[in-house]
Design a protein around this nucleic acid. Structure first.
Ligand code: MN
Ligand code: MN
Ligand code: ZN
Ligand code: ZN
Lengths: 142, 142
DNA sequence: TTTAAGGTTGTAATGAATACAAAAATAAAA
DNA sequence: TTTTATTTTTGTATTCATTACAACCTTAAA
């Protein structure tokens, strides 16, 4: 077992997630991914490594990650939920042409500003989503 | 026909939406609502006034409003899409206890700041969602 | 009054996410 | 070790929001 997995095990444990094989693999996949995958994408990809895995396990695992604060749901697209490992409170940009979701570097982020409450409501989360045409799609049209 | 409906007719026309009876009633309902209703809620309420209306008409109408920029989808909650009449680029607060969605006054809004592009991506929309416990729910617990 | 175009309706289909119970794996107790 | 309890995983069924589609209705031009 390499040190990365050992670290993941410890990380999951310290966040009240029992580090089973499936959960470690899913977390590792999430950490290495830059795509903000959907549950379906995670399932499809991890099936190559663990052909017996069930889609329910993917959903259960992701829900457990979210409940314990080590993964985040992105309600940025209309149909499916995307998942992310929250990291420095960065924002997201969705390309309405190709569907890709990009990270917005924290220095440009609106959501790393500390606000405790607004209009009497206690704030625990702030999500900022940009939408438009991504750099790559803009270049393609030229 | 009162002047309000006349104005709605003109407003829909000027936004490339043919002002049929159903569309006028739905738009009027949206304008008078502060609840950021879902398609289901709109359907249920308008059914009282127009018992023969179909849910498909509600969806068709809302999609047409969104396409023509006179209504906005809020992907703030996990399951259902909420709809809003965009107005001064205000933000939204979702109470994770009672589910109510509140408007955040433009002076506090993060989304009325003018940014044209970021990291090479052309921005056309910016959505900021706050989540937490609303004022009313906080008072109830005391 | 025909014809065409657009609008509405009801039902069927899609698809993401959850519910649930049986089977399997792991941990604790005897 | 064997037995028992707890947790995890799996497969299938179900739910529910949204869309697809075709028949029907309404309105306006021809
Ligand atoms: Mn991200
Ligand atoms: Mn609003
Ligand atoms: Zn793109
Ligand atoms: Zn509340």
């Amino acid at each position: 077992m390499n040190t990365k997995i050992k670290n993941i095990k410890m990380y999951l444990e310290s966040n009240n997630v029992n580090p089973t094989y499936h959960r470690i693999v899913i977390f590792q996949y999430m950490e290495n991914s830059t795509r903000h995958p959907t549950a379906e994408q995670i399932y499809t990809d991890i099936k190559k490594e663990i052909p017996t895995i069930s889609k329910t396990t993917v959903y259960n695992t992701l829900n457990s990650f979210v409940k314990n604060g080590i993964a985040e749901k992105l309600n940025i697209a209309d149909s499916e939920v995307h998942y992310d490992i929250p990291d420095n409170g960065h924002d997201h940009f969705l390309c309405i042409n190709c569907g890709k979701i990009y990270d917005i570097k924290p220095e440009y982020s609106k959501s790393n500003i500390e606000i405790k409450s607004i209009q009497g409501h206690k704030i625990t989360q702030l999500h900022c989503y940009y939408k438009g045409i991504c750099k790559s799609c803009r270049n393609d049209k030229k």
